[in-house]
Design a protein around this nucleic acid. Sequence first.
DNA 1: CTCCACTGGGTACGTTGTACGCGGTTGCGG
DNA 2: CCGCAACCGCGTACAACGTACCCAGTGGAG
Lengths: 270, 270
Amino acid sequence: MYATGEGETVADAEYVNIWMRPERPARGPKPVYSRAQITEAAVRIADAEGLEAATMRRIAAEVGAGTMSLYRYVPSRDNLVELMADRLMGEIDVTGMPSGDWRADLTRYADGLRAMWLRHPWIATVQRSLPSFGPNQLLLIEALMGVLDAFVSIDENLGLMAMLHGYIEGTVREEISSAEEIRRSGLSESEWMARSYPYVDRLVKSGEYPIFTKIVMEARQPHLSRDDQFRYGLQRVLDCIAAALPSTAESPMPAHREGREEQDGPGAGS
Amino acid sequence: MYATGEGETVADAEYVNIWMRPERPARGPKPVYSRAQITEAAVRIADAEGLEAATMRRIAAEVGAGTMSLYRYVPSRDNLVELMADRLMGEIDVTGMPSGDWRADLTRYADGLRAMWLRHPWIATVQRSLPSFGPNQLLLIEALMGVLDAFVSIDENLGLMAMLHGYIEGTVREEISSAEEIRRSGLSESEWMARSYPYVDRLVKSGEYPIFTKIVMEARQPHLSRDDQFRYGLQRVLDCIAAALPSTAESPMPAHREGREEQDGPGAGS
DNA sequence: CTCCACTGGGTACGTTGTACGCGGTTGCGG
DNA sequence: CCGCAACCGCGTACAACGTACCCAGTGGAG
């Protein structure tokens, strides 16, 4: 993004995107490193210290290479981030996914995606993760869209998946953001809570925000765990999808779903 | 983020967050500019050229001030972005919002939020928009949570709103990302399509991605408009919320909803 | 063998956020 | 009224960033 003026490198213009650019051009000395190795190192750093810590110099140091050597493998940092994002997609297990039980499939996908995001919170700051269409992303699309493909039109499928995906992403983003803010500040969670107390207190005392106050107050008593909250909302989304499906798409009986006890609505004290 | 070492400025440590720091400390010459004015200029630049174009120097130039003058009003660029995000929240009209018709309220909110995001696509790249709790954000929370407050517990309300919010954000994010990629590349839409054709073509010809192929092929024939897609999914989400509400929460009859014709499911050719 | 496309990597530049300090201005205590 | 501390706008300076450019070495094709 820096110093590129408004033109682009010849190398950039030569290929449509990262996935079209061959890793090994052959003819010449054997490369010492590899894209996968560099991507791996970058992910490791981003996991530990955040995406902004994964600078080209830092990554090169982690790999044991010179900074500029990375550019033999990756045209730009932005493209490297794309590589990282797609690598993360590969962590989600969707093997054998149109299994016949669409509800189980989508639940597995949702849990997998959420777990991956929680392992790599920095992915939330990467906006172009969707339209990149890297290999792992494509595999995911194939598997996921395949789950309902037999039951609904492509358009409807896209709509429903957008809803599911939106729910997962939105929820996890919220889960991440406060944790990420705490990590950035370098404080411990309790220190952070203590520091932000005066602000919350002022809002509550002002009396202008009754519902915010209610949230804060009830937050003191034990809530549902994050996991349960997520699963509750997910069940709602799946119910919603079920309603959009023809009756021929009936999922096997709930009891079949590995004996997990049925979710109650949250707010048992209601 | 640069050159800050690992300590933080005294001024930063003095206040919990941006909202606690007073704009006018009084005692001294009158400030020539204002936070609102600076925020406005920054939003204008971000709208026109993307968030990354809104550098401190550029914003200062837009305002007509010296670069470092901005730091008299805002402690850091990150905080300015927070200000910008909250200003955007203020664009969403939620006046008189627990109106009695929760379905109409939530629809209005959803449309408003989506329209705002489409006006300011760069908001998608700001991850910390949620836990910031600026004044406009708080107003939104009050109005939005108030809609279902009478019907469900706080926990359940939070869950349902997370679902709604997740759907809106996820969907709009997808709408934005391709448009944003095109803008970044500086190409026109048709140029961009032409440039990425070889990649899509290779994927299709490989035969490994049947569903991706199906999507691409069907994309050639007229789809539902973005608006209709959004509204279709939104209706599904609202149905889903309706199912979670007690029967006492019945919304007025659909006919009451300003005569909008009933949405069909998409994929009429199915 | 010679070639030259390729390698890793050092140096250097433009751009960024922002710490620091200066001279001028303002409102309050005396 | 005066003086001074607190504020103002802002120029300069610096560290860290992404990366263009260049170079000396290397190894497979002819």
